[in-house]
Design a protein around this nucleic acid. Sequence first.
DNA 1: ATGGCTTCATAGTGAAGA
Length: 255
Amino acid sequence: MKLATWNVNSLKVRLPHVLDWLAANQPDVLCLQETKQEDSQFPVDELQQAGYQAVFSGQKTYNGVAIISKAVATEVVYGLPGFPDEQKRLIAATVNGIRVVCVYVPNGQSVDSDKYRYKLAWLAALREWLKQELGRYPKLALLGDYNIAPEDRDVHDPQAWAGNVLVSEPERAAFHALEQLGLRDSFRLFGQPEKSYSWWDYRMMAFRRNMGLRIDHILLSAPLAQNCTGCAIDRAPRKLERPSDHAPVVADLAG
DNA sequence: ATGGCTTCATAGTGAAGA
């Protein structure tokens, strides 16, 4: 069982990369963020030809999430329950007996902004809902673009980023509050290369210089973490022409 | 250097991302 997440920064632009990546990697589940397209535009047929079905929640220009899977997705939830929001940032479904939650956490813009307060409120609501969801579904995976680098080792230059949005203490506390629900950061269940990141700015040749952050994560509940045999960031798509600024993250589960 | 790229919506620029 292979679970993956990828912020594609426009599914319309990135569809060729996504189809190539699915063909090469054959994940059972791929969660997408920033699809940036309305549901009527979603490439259902192209994915079906690749052997995948999808559930999705999109909007024009911004946000948008989807769960692509080989097996049928059931019990679909659209949006974060208890947090009315025009922004399409969460979709959840059951696939192969696993509760898959796909999130695009708000960016927060800057720590003194309304968007930052919205980010923290969104994360608090996510935690409250997940508490219930874990009661109903012990086998739960939370995948997505968290827009949080949990520790300094997830930041290429911690001094330059100190206190900034994506690394600030309240954001990190919100991340750790998710872990306190019993979720494990699958990436850190294993030894990893130093300076492992999942996002690099388009500017300043940041990817070539590996000036990145690790902000895309796969958190697993205990029964899934026990069976997790590996987690890795796939940098290959970031090297392509017209890449997303994020790389896919993949977790393997035994069975 | 608060910029640098990229996308989208739009028809020359502005917002937003992270």
